[in-house]
Simulated scan of single mutants.
Amino acid sequence: MEGERFVMSTAEGPFPMETTYTWSDTASGGTRMTLRNQGEPTGFGQLAAPMMARAMRRANLKDLRTLKRLLENAAT
């Protein structure tokens, strides 16, 4: 269905990555968004991958909290 999935990818940075966002309705009438990052590090990226994964998770959570707050404030 249109508007339920958004995929972006990049070849820049330490390794190529694809990010997929999906949205679905919840039983309570809200919206659930999921986020998935995929990529294969090479070179230095392989060594730094565990630290980068943690940093990416923190950044994603921060961004999602901000997005949630903005959307909820816009709805009121």
Results as ranks from 00 to 15, higher is better:
Arg32Glu: 15
Leu64Met: 07
Thr31Gly: 01
Leu70His: 10
Tyr21Leu: 11
Ala48Asp: 07
Thr22Lys: 06
Thr10Asp: 02
Ala74Gln: 03
Ala49Trp: 09
Phe6Asp: 13
Met52Asn: 05
Asn60Pro: 05
Thr66Cys: 12
Gly45Phe: 04
Arg58Pro: 08
Arg69Ala: 06
Thr20Leu: 02
Thr76His: 09
Phe15Val: 01
Pro16Gln: 00
Asn37Gln: 12
Ala74Pro: 02
Arg54Phe: 13
Met33Gly: 06
Phe44Val: 06
Trp23Ile: 12
Arg32Cys: 10
Ala55Asp: 15
Gly29Asn: 08
Arg5Thr: 13
Glu18His: 00
Ala75Thr: 10
Met1Val: 14
Thr19Lys: 03
Pro50Arg: 06
Lys62Ile: 13
Thr26Asn: 05
Glu72Met: 05
Met56His: 08
Glu40Trp: 02
Leu47Cys: 07
Asn60Thr: 14
Pro50Thr: 09
Ser24Phe: 03
Arg57Trp: 12
Ser28Val: 13
Met56Thr: 15
Leu61Cys: 12
Gln38Trp: 00
Tyr21Ser: 05
Gly13Ile: 02
Ala55Trp: 15
Arg36Trp: 04
Arg32Thr: 15
Asp25Pro: 01
Phe6Cys: 09
Gly29Cys: 09
Gly30Lys: 09
Ala53Trp: 14
Met17Glu: 07
Glu18Leu: 01
Gly3Asn: 12
Met56Gln: 13
Thr22Phe: 00
Pro14Trp: 14
Thr26Gln: 05
Leu35His: 08
Gln46Ser: 09
Glu40Thr: 10
Glu4Ser: 10
Glu12Trp: 01
Pro14Thr: 12
Thr26Ser: 01
Pro14Gly: 11
Met52Gln: 09
Thr34Asn: 05
Thr22His: 05
Thr20Arg: 05
Glu18Pro: 01
Ser28Cys: 11
Met17Asp: 03
Ala53Arg: 15
Ala11Gln: 04
Gly3Pro: 11
Val7Met: 07
Asn73Asp: 07
Lys68Gln: 15
Ala49Val: 11
Leu70Gly: 01
Tyr21Asp: 05
Arg58Asn: 15
Val7Gln: 08
Arg32Lys: 06
Ala75Glu: 08
Asn60Gln: 14
Ala55Val: 14
Met8Ile: 07
Thr66Arg: 15
Glu72Ile: 11
Arg65Thr: 09
Ala27His: 05
Lys62Met: 14
Asp63Tyr: 14
Tyr21Gly: 03
Met51His: 11
Asn60Asp: 15
Ala11Glu: 05
Leu70Trp: 10
Glu72Ala: 00
Ala75Lys: 08
Arg36Tyr: 06
Gly39His: 03
Glu12Ile: 02
Leu70Asn: 04
Gln38Gly: 08
Met1Tyr: 14
Phe44Arg: 10
Ser9Gly: 08
Asn73Thr: 12
Glu18Cys: 02
Met8Thr: 09
Thr76Lys: 12
Thr22Pro: 03
Ser9Val: 03
Gly13Glu: 04
Gly45Glu: 03
Leu70Ala: 01
Thr31Ser: 02
